[in-house]
Amino acid sequence: MICARRVPFIAALAIAAALGLAGCGAAVPEASSGGASPSGTGTPSEPAGPTSAPATAGPTTSGARPPSSAPVSAGVATYTFPDGRLSFKYPAGWRVELFTGAGQPTLSRTATVFDAGGTEQVTVYSGQVADAVSHRVSRTVFESEPVPGLSRQIAPAASYSFYVERMDGSATYRMDLTPGVPAAGDGTRIDGIIQIGDEVLVAEVRFIEKPFASDAAAKLWLAGAEGQALKALLLSISYS
Rank of each mutant, 00 (worst) to 15 (best):
S73L: 01
F99C: 01
Q128M: 07
Q121E: 08
A184H: 06
G34K: 05
I196A: 07
L21N: 11
M175G: 06
Q104R: 05
L98R: 09
A232V: 12
L177N: 10
V76C: 02
P8S: 14
G103V: 06
A102H: 03
S39Y: 02
V28E: 03
E209D: 15
E165V: 09
M1I: 13
R5E: 14
P82R: 07
Q104T: 10
T188K: 11
A232E: 15
E143L: 13
A12S: 15
D115K: 02
G187L: 04
A130Y: 03
G23H: 08
S52W: 01
P82V: 03
G197L: 09
S214P: 10
T188I: 10
A55M: 00
M175A: 12
A16C: 11
G20N: 13
V7E: 14
R5V: 15
L222F: 15
G169P: 09
G25E: 05
E46A: 08
C24K: 10
A48P: 04
G93Y: 06
E30D: 11
T100V: 06
A77Q: 02
K219F: 05
P179K: 13
P29S: 06
T60Q: 01
P82K: 08
T61C: 01
A31G: 12
S214V: 09
S240V: 13
V129I: 02
R109Q: 09
Q228S: 15
A74M: 04
V76G: 01
S39Q: 04
W94Q: 01
P59C: 00
Q153I: 12
I193R: 09
S159P: 08
H135I: 01
S214F: 08
L230F: 14
V137M: 02
S126E: 06
Y90H: 07
